[in-house]
Write a protein that binds this DNA or RNA. Structure first.
Length: 220
DNA sequence: AACTGGTTCAACCGCGTCTGA
DNA sequence: ATCAGACGCGGTTGAACCAGT
């Protein structure tokens, strides 16, 4: 006996959104907001969609200032650092990346960054399949090492983060690395995530000074 | 050109948490 | 204090696209 569905699946449209539906939803939300209830919004807006589907479409695609694709090195660093410290709290991680959604960050981690990090640190397995790499990564400790210089970053809670706030810049030593004959992306990751040279003192200092207060402010 | 396997990412699902009556 | 409905989240799925053969 499972939980009752949030809406009648036989009466709502599913699958990809059409441009017309996007326009309807965008216009309605911009004019009326969410009216305090996503569940009732589709009916008010004249959409044959589940409220949860509307909410997801708005948050991940239609709302202003959304950025798609092209994650920067600085964003990579922030994702890796926060994943190392708090795990797969994608909404918390995304809140530190203006314009990024939790879905975007999650997809980026699962499809690209995780593999990139592993390959950069295990060059001999670079030709392995994604499935094989993923299974290896999943069996590893979640506690990736963190470069001490990342301590310089300042993180803001979401309600203090302006929509177009600049992403905290990476330290110079992390921004212009071309080492070991690797591409800049890979060299950057290798240099910023040195598996064998992690300073635990720095990790705990960083965790207690910056991440734990932030993490606690998000606990729900 | 056709097929196949891999990759990407939008969307869905179900569960935990929150909130207001 | 309790409970039902709504919200928000992380995990997963599958269609579309891409690259190699």
């Amino acid at each position: 006996m499972g939980r009752a569905p949030c809406c009648d699946k036989t009466k709502v449209k599913r699958g990809p959104w059409s441009p017309e539906e996007d326009t309807t939803l965008r216009n309605f939300v911009q004019k009326h907001g969410t009216s305090g209830s996503w569940i009732s919004l589709p009916q008010k807006a004249g959409l044959k969609r589940c409220g949860k589907s509307c909410r997801l479409r708005w948050l991940n695609y239609l709302r202003p200032n959304i950025k798609h694709g092209g994650f920067t090195h600085e964003e990579d660093t922030i994702i890796l650092t926060l994943y190392h410290n708090i795990g797969s709290r994608w909404s918390v991680i995304a809140s530190q990346l203006p314009g990024r959604t939790d879905n975007d960050v999650k997809n980026y981690w699962n499809t690209k960054l995780k593999k990139k990090l592993f390959v950069a640190n295990h060059p001999t397995t670079a030709t392995a399949t994604t499935e094989g790499i993923n299974s290896k990564i999943d069996s590893m400790s979640p506690y990736f090492p963190v470069d001490a210089e990342i301590l310089d970053h300042q993180f803001l809670p979401p309600d203090e983060m302006p929509d177009c706030a600049p992403i905290p810049s990476a330290p110079a030593s992390l921004s212009n690395i071309h080492a070991n004959g690797l591409y800049e992306d890979d060299a950057f990751l290798v240099e910023s995530m040195p598996y064998d040279a992690f300073d635990f003192q720095d990790k705990f200092s960083y965790q207690s000074n910056y991440l734990e207060p932030m993490y606690q402010s998000y606990t729900y």
